[in-house]
Amino acid sequence: MSKADRTTSVSKQTSCQTLTPGKHYDKIMSVSESDFNYIRELVLERSAIVLEDGKQYLVESRIGQVVETEGFDTIGQLVEALRKNSHNGLQSKVIEALTTNETSFFRDIHPFEILKDPVLPEILKSRENTKKLNIWCAASSSGQEPYSIAMLIRDHFPALLGWKTHFIASDISEKMLERCRSGKFSQLEVNRGLPAAFLVKYFEKNGATWSIKNQLREMIHFQQINLSMELPYLPKMDIIFLRNVLIYFDIETKKRILNQLRSILQPDGYLFLGAAESTINLDSSFERMNYKHSGCYRLKR
């Protein structure tokens, strides 16, 4: 291949979408104050996620994409359709656009290192008799987090594959769950945080799409869960991942979510929050473990 034929480019932007072929938006989107207020009330009501002042740019970039795909010319037109409820499913598309977060495989690496040692070895030891393990990856977005955990388990703890394991990955967005279930990723996505050895071992390439092998997809049960509502029945969890999610909720909702997590976390289980998140002033029953940057919590004994 000659260099002239190459399409190599580099972007300083963090979003993969800036490089995704076919996703180019020509229309310049701006949101009025009243439309912004309408959208944030809708998002608050439907998902309990708070869009603070100054997040207009987020609405413009995320909702701008829905405007394009749904055939509107402006955000104003889209909000008008929302007010009249004239477009079937439009509310859900707007909520999904604003609640879907960028992620990568083995994001922030430290929680996965802690999972590898000491968390999973400890659990292997303490559950030796029952051989039961329950993991919940809440807000799994497009699937990189649960599949990272699945790869780690398969690679380093093959003994767990013979255990009775419930590995649940959930998200508020059915669209995201469909993506998770499909296990399909773009080249840009598998370039992010995924060890090359895992790419070779656990993926197949079909055209431009990289697909997770069935042996990993079959490890995970994908389920729609809205964290701001009452949780459906879930088994007692040994490990819960809820990383970089609480930051989007108001204080009362954070407390409610942590209260629910407390009731389903095993007394010796582990909760992983984002490194910058904390239970301080929200729930005094958790204590942060002294594991570097991992956001790892346990219930106080």
């Binding site: 580099v10 090359a196 197949e204």
Partner: peptide
């Protein structure tokens, strides 16, 4: 970007592999 190329590079002794285009974050 072929999977056998990634495997070949690792076999040769590469520690990691990135497919162009890339970003600073990648």
């Amino acid at each position: 970007t072929a999977i056998n190329k990634v495997a070949e590079a690792l076999e040769a002794g590469a520690d990691e592999y990135i497919m162009k285009p890339f970003t600073r974050e990648m």
